[in-house]
Design a protein around this nucleic acid. Sequence first.
DNA 1: TCCCAACGCGCT
DNA 2: AAAGCGCGTTGGGA
Length: 824
Amino acid sequence: MSQYSLFHRQGRRIVSGLRCTQCDLANNPDLQTNCMEGTGNRNRPTYLFAGVSPGKDDDASGIPMVGRNGSLFRQLLSEAGFNLQDCFISNCLRCTLAGGSPKKAHWKACKHHFLRDLAQIQPQVVVAVGGPATTLLAGHSGVQRLRRKLLPLESNANFLVYPIRQPAQLFHQEGRNESIALRASMVDDLRFLKNLVGRNQIRRGADVVLDYRTARTAEDVDAFLEEMGQVPELAFDFETSSLFPTKGDRLVAVGFSWGEGIARAIPLDARGETSLRWWLDGYLQEELLPKLREFMRRKKLWGHNAIQFDQKWSRAFLDLEFLDIDYDTQFGHYVLDEERGTHGLEQLAVLHTNMEPWKSEFNLEDTAQLSGYLCKDCDATWRLRKVFEPQLTPRKQWLLHELIIPLAKELDRVEWQGVRVNEQGFEDLDKYIRGRVSEEYEKIRSDSAVRAFEVSKNRSFEVDKHADVREVMRDYLKLKQVKTTDGGEYSTDVEVLEHYSDSVPTVAGIAAIRRLNKLHGTYVTGLREAVIDGRLHTTYKVHGTVTGRPSSSNPNLMNIPRSDTAGKVLQDANAIKRCFRSEDGYLLLQADYSQAELRVMACMSGDPSLIDIYRKGLDAHTATAAKVYGASLEEVTKGQRSNAKTVNFGIIYGMSWEGVLKKFLAAGNTEAEAKSFYDGHKRTFPCIWAWMDEQERLIRRTGEQTTPFGRTRHYGEIDNRAVRQSYNFPIQSMASDLTLISLVRTAKVLRQRNLPARVCLTVYDSIVYEIRQDAFWEVCQLVHSMMAGIQFDWMQVPMEVDMEVGYTWGDLKSIDMKNLTISS
DNA sequence: TCCCAACGCGCT
DNA sequence: AAAGCGCGTTGGGA
């Protein structure tokens, strides 16, 4: 899988820098520029010029189209009236052929670079410079014959290729009369292209003739299924009456596509004027659904709904436990471009295909209209795969097919099973918190400032109204502003409240009420409303974050309060987590990667001191403090350990000196102490700081980072925030991927061995399993050995896995894996 | 009634 | 001034 080495070893250290080694061109000992970037206007220029590969001078300088050939080419462009501002200049192959000829393997290995540029840059037309480039791009040879023609780009027919002859030909005929004529005709060809553009004759091509059909009779259905019978793989989509199938919901229609502009829609729930006759006589349940089930059961499918969605509806309405889905266009796009909110079907189709917007046609109440809409969804889904899939590097193929898609399928099962909850627990909490809130309100209402506020407003003071809290603190309690909100207002967030809590009891009361309200609204009322048959079913999003972490929503089960938070206002600190429980006869097992991010940092930076700490199995924060303070492990004080912890976390987030100072001061240190620790840390862990500098240089040079797992983060303007993100991204992303890989692997093995255990929850670096009691120890050992034994070539320290067991999420006990005992 | 911004806060 | 999320309430506007 290491065909690229973003992180490659140099001596002891692993440094970053993109080095492509995917074809033999990279092995050329004389190669100066590995994987050359194009140059010019990247923002929808008219022309993208593509030579076959960098020339000798290009290779030496790192820029395409320089040297003798390049300047001749630029001269011709200028004579033909081209403006370089409107051009992007690159090559089909990114490493020099050094006079050799391009082989299929070169293009196959390199193509994704070109196609990615193309998709991002979106030129109006691609100009293939010379015969070899034309062959690679358009699959035709003989430039002479193809002069002044527009050909479809072989890998993505949405782009047109205009072949021109190689200007360097002129050097072979220098001084001859033919040379003058040849030069003139080359310029003419360029002018011809410019005129085509000027007359607006190169547009995104008119779309293909659409072959969309909707089934209106049973005969139509049979004909469609017959027609699609021979097609091994189909794009498909469901139209549904809601986002999550619950009672009363309807699977409205299903559609398929197997070619550009081809789609079939089969309505299942007819509405509007176009009522279908078979809908009326029981045909749906007795014939159509079974037929459809048999049909879909045997097909490889791909969709655009992030898999879990399709899976749930087919399970609920087609009685198909698992669809054979091997691609999803949202994921396909996500691995190429991680930006949030960019994976919408219509948005992608408009950007990458010839299709026009259609989402406004959505109408659940008119089946005929909806079917047309569905056909477009399916068509777009089919087309987008053809656009995105060729852009995948081998590493991204691995990421998509070996991690993301299997993960989505596993998480689908997790969501579907859900987690058992103790509803009585929620009710008790509801009552308790209401009581606590009135108590606290009673206390603060005895404050004269609060009373004065209420008198002047002639209404009660409410903690949930930010303006109320602000006014009371600022104007009645006369407390100085400590912090400003984004909107430039007097902030009253938890940090400010805590600042005054010790000295002003009313502020402490406000803080308590706010926390109680949060716990009540989000975790008691909110969760209770989401319970279905005694279980909570979250939805995990696999493509929702720029780092590759999953996210959870409806309800979010990744932000359930921990005991130290809840304990600040609840008598029973674990009351909320205790509402999450195992099924009768089962146990919960929580497996946590301990300090995954700092361990990844140790591996990526190659820092000998940090590696040493983890190889010796020490407590990382204590050991950090010991090294920085020059003390023995036993001598490290609580305060010193806490300082080390602050900096260790700060590093992961790219905290600045000012940030460190602030934290240290807040913890009761002097500025001198902060400074001394900060400098001491840099001296003790030099490779960590060098690695961070490396990341900054990398994103300044290339604008992006890619992890060994194939996750990429793109940056726009490189500001301070981007620099901090560059420190955090590989660490957070890789740590998360280790957990996700473990989740997929362990879940699969549990199933293969038919063990009575399954994944029940996951929170970033932890996985919670629900295990039947009699199989507990077997599963526990299996999970532990798989998770702790995870190994990749870049890993230089062991991964430790903390194991905990309990009947609920709120009273987990540590497991001693050596002795297989449970701590009391 | 729905949508959005602002603010704040829960988690790793 | 420390990364990544989802979601609650309030309050203004369409």
